[in-house]
Design a protein around this nucleic acid. Sequence first.
RNA 1: GCACCCGUAGCUCAGCAGGAUAGAGCAUCAGAUUCCUAAUCUGAGGGCCAUGGGUUCGAAUCCCGUCGGGUGCACCA
Length: 574
Amino acid sequence: MSLYTRFTAHLDTVLDILEADGVLPTGLNRKPVTVEPPRDASHGDLATNAAMVLAKPAGTNPRALAEAIVEKLEGLTEVASASIAGPGFINLTLTDVTWRSELAVLAEEGDDYGRSDIGQGVTVNVEYVSANPTGPMHMGHCRGAVVGDALATLLEYAGHKVIREYYINDAGGQVDVLARSAHLRYREALGEAITIPEGLYPGDYLVLVGEALMHDFGDTYKDKPESEWLGLFRKRAVEYMMILIREDLGKLGIKHDVFSSEAELQAAGKPDEAEAWLRAHDLVYDGVLEAPKGELPDDWEPVVLPLFRSTKFGDDQDRPIKKSNGSWTYFGADMAYHYQKAQSADQLIDIWGADHAGTVKRIQAAVAALTEGKARFDVKLIQMVRLLRDGEPVKMSKRAGNFVTLADVVQEVGKDVVRFTMLTRKADAQMDFDFAKVVEASKDNPVFYVQYAHARISSLGRRAEEAGIVLPAPDLSLLGTAELGLIKLAAQFPRVVEGAALTREPHRIAFYLNDLASAFHGWWNMGNDDPRARVILADDPALTSSRLFLSRGIGQIIRNGLALMGVAALTELN
RNA sequence: GCACCCGUAGCUCAGCAGGAUAGAGCAUCAGAUUCCUAAUCUGAGGGCCAUGGGUUCGAAUCCCGUCGGGUGCACCA
């Protein structure tokens, strides 16, 4: 239990007592009551707004209530002092012993320091990546992949059951194009000279697929009409693409639990089931869409389509679930897919590129309809990443097939750098990824800065050994003011993890680690001005041992934080 | 025309489950290196949190309008 959680419980007990004493009426809503570190450290270690938010419903004034609460809180052994400030804040200062013992807790819990059960075992399905199976992964997919994966890890750490899922879009027109492109490469593998026409995928990665297909089928389908091979080639080419994609994901350290196929979903009749249910509830009807506002497409004509009443759930327009040729729209299938996911999870999260922002409302409407409002469902939009090389945008053309692949980037800068960097911005803010900057060894680069702190800590252990200092058991009472400051920041880690999990914002971990690293570097550098402030003091094994203990604690937190981000901690820099 | 996202220091961005005097890095200026890795650190200046209202004891944070930027707008995925 984190220190903050513990004090929330303490405060709760105090409020119970005040209720029993008749100072507070029973049944007050305590939800707005918070226990947090104050922004300004001079206000103490913890602050609560309890008196302010409860005074009004209790029919008393904040100061009087605060006094009653303070009186009880002062009785706690962990509290050094409690005071009332401003409009009714209660500020607590904890004893040094309390903080020092938190350091012992950290050492004791190790890799689990920061783990919590706030998720209460609720199952969350996180669907991320879901790149079309028509080619290798490129950098456009990267950020969503990392954010989704880190979020999944974070939720697990916070006590959720997590299903990591990938939706294979293998039923649309683009996989026909893939099949035709693969067939062309197949003919090429059989010795034919080919030219790639406009509209087919030109990428080199299909050469291998063509060769594989040649091994699979010999020349059986070389000159056959499309109708004889299209379905088969589609299926086989998608399989090969998924092997490629899994490999790419593996390079980023990402492994999904479930891969769901859109084609299989349709073959199993899931969209039909969803449609039938929705029709029975008058949520699907046959109708004609209004002409789109703004510029009218050339080929627009009114047609009757089965429409889902997404307007009933806040969308601007009802949405077709089938095309005029009778096949399912992407939305029609996706709707059924989300319904299927909701069968095995309490909550759903989709990680999407921001270019799909326009379709969020309809899928949320569909989930609300099909689960009758029971499943929490969030769509997290991931903004674009601009690739730069020394400040200049990297030119890419998907049509020419020369997009920057994820594998190339991982190869160039490394998995850990890619993952960390992708988490140094809030997901819904655009970001730049500069090949030069992300590997720069300077404090401008948080990836490096955090790793450097960890490397320094690791070096301390080695140094102490080399110096041959015989270390006694650490005596935490030797740690002074500067060390306590570091401990207080370290003790916030569990709170940061909880906050990141609740708001589903994994980037908070990266920012916290940067702050922690900064505090550590500052502490370390005190040793430059004052040699007595160094960690390793050959003539003072007791102090050395205590400071090493603290350093290791900081190192532990950096490792825990990095682990949540899927990044390995470095023990030395090269 | 409509919807969504964004607007915080000169620049890049945190902070937004409402909390006290709005933070960090870069850049600028002034300092620290016989050093446990200075690949670092210390300090200073720099803000009508786009704007106008509203809710609240309290708003950068929540709600509405306006302005500015980005994205997407029929049976593409």
